[in-house]
Design a protein around this nucleic acid. Structure first.
Length: 593
RNA sequence: CGGGGAGUGGCUCAGCCUGGUAGAGCACCUGGUUCGGGACCAGGGGGUCGGAGGUUCGAAUCCUCUCUCCCCGACCA
């Protein structure tokens, strides 16, 4: 039992002005955290207590499939060299030097260290599979920390790594994580979804993110309400409705039309009296190719083309091209590679490179364009467009593929599904994905298979953002007065509020009840402060504790009030029944207690 | 990194434009009254106005530089 009168719970009546999102405001107001610097936070008593409970759940569930390690956050440069990530991580990694001038870094993740252990220790297929995990502080020099604990430079991550003999084994490890993650997030009281995700720069195949819908999130999720399809928009696809082609004009061949000052899609469409879908949009990039060692190798010009009403999806484009980085061309580069300014760029007359990021200009075309005809496109000449532009006949490309972002309302990509996609913001709380051989291969980890042949184990990598669980929980369960956590992750199960501590009867009754609850296994916070009742009620409702028992006037009839924070309702309970009433509410699943 | 905004007591902010030596509410301390929805009265403590330089008789206020934080776009748990 903890007595509030002796705790440090610095609640704030008003939120500091630099807090924007709900979770940030409430974490500060409730005295869970305090900021130390951009993306760096102190966790105070209540915050740490809640995070500890989250960690305990993660640990308990992870122990059913894996073994807990604890690896150093401080890593020598050498460990990060073979995978190419010492350079590959770029400015996102914190780096430092020791007194001898040797390079070190603060680890952002631990694939290399885990693989290093595997490389040195694993000899035989009989030792596989292995699942190793840790709960550790991670450091990332985020370009832009924001939104309280949502995007920070130091945070706690549960990261695990699986080593399997073959792809089928990896499938099992992946699936085990999927199941365990679902249990963890469910026990933490989160309403979450799992979505297909891009496997990104880490390399690998299947990739799945666990997301919590909230406007504070930074990811966009496309989902189908009919069939349940869900994917990060970085990855999501859709079926496009057929486009009614324009009738050709004149001889049907590309015709130069003066369009002075009409650089914007909307202006061009209005001028030609066409829909934006019949205008070709060009977005030009410089794309970086990296070598085997992760070092930047060369920049290549890329012209991407898509429908005027579509947006480029840079993640998809990078994936299609095999590019490591993408940045928009500047005006001089547009002039140099395309000989025209933005607004008048088009595919006609370009000479596409033979393969992506080879010598010359890489022309990438969205596949919504490859069968189209009689479109309008920039003429690669200031103040001119072309009409009657037909794919294949009038222009060619290096590569065609899906390089656009889906839009809300488009048809679900699933075969036979009639649903329309809905797009919503979400925050990522966990990520599981199949790494493949990237690390085991580059670092030379091998085992002998049953035939005595050397084989490279296949890896998976799985992360959970601990603070993000807390943040997401607050985002999805708050009101004007504060927030509420599920009992399993709340710093306390119940707060016993004595309305007036100067009344010896009330004080004694509250003390006694709190002690009984404590004895019965509840985490109890006794509000024995010499404050007015209103102050105590406000505080209790602010700080995330799911239940409050008010010890007040009704004590004369041996009764108290039980207030349920999530519903903001209270019931009168006889003193003798408090424990029995609270038991199923706090411990709904006996095995989870 | 590019674009926008803000730094004045613990918190929210006023004062700045139009220089004259810092203020309110909340919080805090003491005493008293009060005690089921962020009380009241009286008294009190606390700020080199982010930092440096400059202009001026005089700078929170004007000028230059700088640091930090927040928000919007490229990264990720």
């Amino acid at each position: 039992m903890h007595r509030w009168s002796r705790l440090f719970v610095p609640t704030l009546r008003e939120a500091p002005s630099d807090a924007e999102v709900a979770s940030h405001k409430f974490l500060l107001r409730s005295g869970y955290i305090r900021q130390l610097g951009a993306g760096i936070y102190n966790y105070l008593f209540l915050g740490q207590r809640s995070l500890n409970k989250i960690i305990a759940i993660i640990r308990e569930e992870m122990d059913t499939i894996g073994q807990e390690f604890f690896l150093p956050a401080l890593n020598p440069r050498e460990v990060w060299e073979p995978s190419g990530r010492w350079t590959g991580m770029g400015d996102n990694m914190f780096r430092l030097q020791d007194r001898k001038g040797a390079d070190l870094c603060l680890a952002m993740t631990h694939e290399e260290i885990m693989t290093e252990i595997a490389r040195r220790e694993l000899r035989s297929y009989k030792q596989l599979p292995q699942i190793w995990y840790q709960i550790q502080t991670k450091f990332r020099d985020e370009p832009r920390p924001k939104s309280g604990l949502l995007r920070v430079r130091q945070f706690t991550m549960k990261d695990s790594y699986s080593f399997d003999l073959d792809a089928a084994g990896l499938d099992r490890s992946f699936d085990q994580h999927d199941q365990v993650y679902r249990r963890i997030f469910t026990r933490c009281g989160l309403r979450f979804v799992s979505v297909d995700a891009d496997s990104g720069a880490m390399g690998g195949s299947q990739s799945q993110e666990f997301m919590v819908y909230t406007d504070a999130g930074e990811d966009l999720i496309a989902s189908c309400p009919v069939c349940g399809y869900a994917a990060n928009v970085e990855k999501a696809t859709s079926r496009l409705d057929p486009v009614v082609e324009m009738e050709p004009t004149g001889d049907g061949m590309p015709e130069l039309v003066s369009t002075p000052g009409l650089g914007a899609i909307a202006d061009v469409a209005r001028f030609f009296q066409i829909l934006p879908a019949s205008d070709i949009k060009c977005v030009a990039y410089m794309a970086l190719r990296r070598g085997q060692n992760g070092a930047p190798e060369s920049w290549h010009p890329v012209a991407s083309f898509l429908r005027g009403d579509h947006q480029v999806n840079e993640t998809k484009l990078m994936g299609l091209l095999g590019a490591a980085e993408l940045r928009p061309m500047v005006a001089e580069e547009l002039e140099l590679f395309l000989h025209a300014p933005a607004g008048f760029l088009g595919p006609v007359g370009l000479e596409p490179a033979a393969t992506p990021l080879a010598q010359g200009l890489t022309v990438a075309v969205d596949h919504s364009l490859t069968e189209r005809k009689n479109m309008v496109a920039g003429a690669n000449k200031l103040d001119y467009h072309l009409r009657n532009v037909t794919a294949g006949r009038d222009f060619r490309w290096t590569i065609a593929g899906d390089i656009r972002s889906v839009l809300e309302g488009e048809s679900c990509p699933c075969a036979g599904c009639s649903g329309r996609l809905v797009v919503g913001k979400a925050v990522e709380i966990g990520h599981i994905f199949k790494l493949g051989y990237k690390y085991t291969q580059s670092m030379g980890a091998t085992v002998l298979d049953p035939n005595g042949k050397e084989v490279t184990p296949i890896m998976g990598s799985y992360g959970i953002g601990v603070e993000r669980i807390l943040t997401a929980a607050i985002e999805q369960s708050h009101d004007d007065a504060g927030f509420w956590l599920t009992p399993a992750i709340a710093p306390f199960h119940v707060v016993v509020t004595i309305t007036n501590t100067t009344d010896p009867t009330l004080l004694a009754a509250g003390e006694s009840l709190a002690a009984q609850l404590d004895q019965a296994g509840f985490d109890v916070l006794l509000d024995d402060r010499d404050e007015r009742a209103g102050v105590k009620f406000k505080d209790a409702e602010l700080i995330g504790i799911p239940f409050r028992i008010t010890v007040g006037k009704k004590i004369a009839e041996q009764q108290v009030e039980l207030f349920t924070r999530s519903t903001a309702t209270s019931i009168v309970v006889p003193l003798a029944d408090v424990i029995a009433t609270l038991q199923p509410l706090v411990f709904p699943n006996p095995s989870a207690a």
